[in-house]
Design a protein around this nucleic acid. Structure first.
Lengths: 136, 136
DNA sequence: TCAGTACTCATACTAAAGTACCAAAAACAC
DNA sequence: GTGTTTTTGGTACTTTAGTATGAGTACTGA
């Protein structure tokens, strides 16, 4: 969050500087009006694309709602299991990668199904993605 | 595709007009350099955001790769079943909504698993989303 | 019309997934 | 340090999921 504020502040300052600079450059007769307008247009065009890309990244994709996870009472281990499930692994495979027994995974999955109000792991995946607690 | 070309052509023409207009407005003394530059900056900023949003929509989201579906030899019915699976329904539930027997669904699912090179339905969902044959 | 493909369904089976209940370490908060 | 939650694991069971095989029907292109 601090980083975002910093980047935006720097951006605004840079744009204001550009603004002033272009005005000076034009008034002092170094540049024609076409070039000044062209440069301004290109710069703001690129800035628009950049800002939009950043905001979309946070909104749509990789943003995970940690509050929601807490609200639902999903523990760390349970969440780890949920992630593995969403990648299409079986209970046995998850047990092996997390160095646990299959029984443990079954317990975690069962708890997850209750907490996500689902009857099947596929349904749990769907719900989790809709609730933005899993990357879409 | 035709629509895209049209929109872009109109956009470019509008921007060129704006460009010329701003130059004329300034030279004729109606507007100050600050206002001209400001308007140009805002317009190009908005255009940048708009174009970026459009391109990202097509790239990342709701675009379904029908070619890929055909390549994999997935039939219409099979694809319908795949969609239902990805929504978290059981074979029985899918059978009921499509007015088929559970046996038929099992056959379709089995074929899907072969065609998507998967061992489980959850894995099939993952692969299908990566291949962009299911909405992400 | 005939071959090929897609679609449907059944049986019989194996393999996962999921439930219910219990219980003991381990981590954590107060 | 005591109570609470988390994590781990087990047994025994039911329910889904998935495989293998066969077979009839419907549609489609040559």
């Amino acid at each position: 969050m601090k980083k975002t504020v910093f980047v935006f502040s720097a951006l605004i300052i840079a744009l204001l500087l550009l603004f002033k600079l272009s005005r000076y450059a034009y008034l002092s007769g170094d540049l024609s009006i076409e070039i000044v307008i062209g440069v301004i247009a290109i710069v703001f065009f690129v800035v628009g694309i950049y800002i939009n890309k950043k905001s979309l990244q946070k909104e749509k994709n990789h943003f995970i709602d940690h509050k929601k996870i807490e609200e639902l009472g999903i523990s760390k281990r349970e969440y780890e299991v949920l992630v593995q499930i969403s990648k299409g692994f079986s209970n046995k495979e998850i047990a092996d990668t997390l160095f646990l027994s299959e029984s443990t995974i079954k317990t975690h999955v069962s708890n997850l199904l209750v907490k996500l109000d689902s009857k099947r792991r596929t349904q749990a995946i769907e719900k989790a993605k809709n609730l933005q607690i899993l990357p879409i």
